[in-house]
């Protein structure tokens, strides 16, 4: 089914300026794969060298963090929007 993914401003340069990308997917993981297959340059900003989602990159289905649902296995109900949201962390060391 069609899933809309909201792209945060810094990553739009890798999606040809698109703010919303629509992909065919049944789960969060499938949506991410479809997104990065279409726009491969997104990969290094979403995933680390081991291919895992970077720790500061979060995915929200509506208002729910998918980490507290079923992670990448989380099914996406029809009409739901997936948001990519950074947590902002850092520090002097």
């Amino acid at each position: 089914m069609a899933v809309q993914i909201l792209i945060p401003t810094p990553l739009r340069v890798y999606t040809k300026g698109e703010k919303v990308v629509t992909v065919e997917a049944g789960t969060v993981g499938e949506a991410l794969r479809a997104l990065t297959e279409r726009f491969p340059e997104l990969r290094r900003h979403l995933f680390n060298e081991e291919g895992r989602l970077r720790s500061f990159v979060n995915l929200y289905l509506g208002d729910e963090d998918v980490r507290y649902l079923q992670g990448e296995e989380t099914p996406i109900p029809d009409g739901q929007t997936l948001s990519i949201v950074p947590s902002i962390a850092g520090g002097r060391r």
Partner: peptide, 19 residues
């Protein structure tokens, strides 16, 4: 940042606040 004793060298703005 979850551990307050580390806040002298770490900070966090959680994703729900960024959202």
């Amino acid at each position: 940042w979850v551990d307050p004793t580390e806040q002298t060298h770490r900070f966090l703005i959680p994703p729900e606040e960024v959202l």
